[in-house]
Amino acid sequence: MDAFDILGRIITLTLFAATLRMATPVLFATLGGICSAHSGVFNVGLEGLLDLGAFFAVVGSVALGSPWAGLALAIVSCLVASLVFAVIHLELKAHEIIVGLALNLFAYGLTNYLLVAILKATGFYKSPLIIGFQPVNIPLIERIPIVGELLSGHSPLVYLGFLGVALAYVGLFKTPWGFHLRAVGENADAAEAVGINTRLMKYAGMLLSGALCGFGGAFLSLAYLNMFSENMTAGRGWLALAAVNFGEGRPLKSLVACLIFGFADALAIRLQQFGLPSQLVLMLPYVATLVVLILSAIQRSRKAEQVLESPPPAAKPVEV
């Protein structure tokens, strides 16, 4: 078996289809992070929100027998948690990073507690009672040879995630609402002075952040795997934070980062099937994140250096 052969067996169409799937939960959390970042809040609670979403999606699905009900419960629970976050940060003036970390801790404790208390399970809960999302085949596209295999047959949430990127772009950069939100995040004083209710906008940004994480969490426990387990978010909220950072607030650029993580995730699973130690290949997404972080930082500092190295522009004096 030569190297190309091995490579050919690893890099298949399924790998790319899996990339889209694995990118989805990070993508939802990233879109959430972008919304709160534009309102001026650095949301480090994404991880905890995903965790809550994943858990309550299972609860909703089991209780009401429908994945959509699970999704609804996931969204509601994340909205409540973000509301608490927002109140403590905005009204009681606690530091955003600390409140975010507290949310992660709280969510981790609560889901594990309720896992035992409500679902009577330790460590993980898997049951035929969990009704997950069914894959959707897209009528025309599924027949196109390669494209069909790649794009068709995913969970509806995958399509929603990618639709979300477009919606976020339009919402943030084209509508009056986004126009106001970004103003609040960049200079809250200026927004307040023209009568924009900055507090309301910040709440909106953070609640949206929560709702989107609800989608992401539901995807994890009702579409990617039909189960809930401790630590099932596996740091995806943090990957999302890196993607937000990489995209500098632009949804499309962040999508690129999400796809990189998705690919690393998918590759890790694939490589495990080839007998590589799981512990090592599972490091891939985190290493990829570090690389993405470094690349985006270098790119930023290059930009700054280029400006510094350019000859003193005589045409552009310091104006008064």
Binding site: V99, A102, L103, L105, F106, Y108, G109, L110, Y113
Partner: peptide
């Protein structure tokens, strides 16, 4: 853990 999270809040 929940109590700890609350304290941190």
């Amino acid at each position: 853990v929940t109590v700890k999270g609350t304290i941190m809040f």
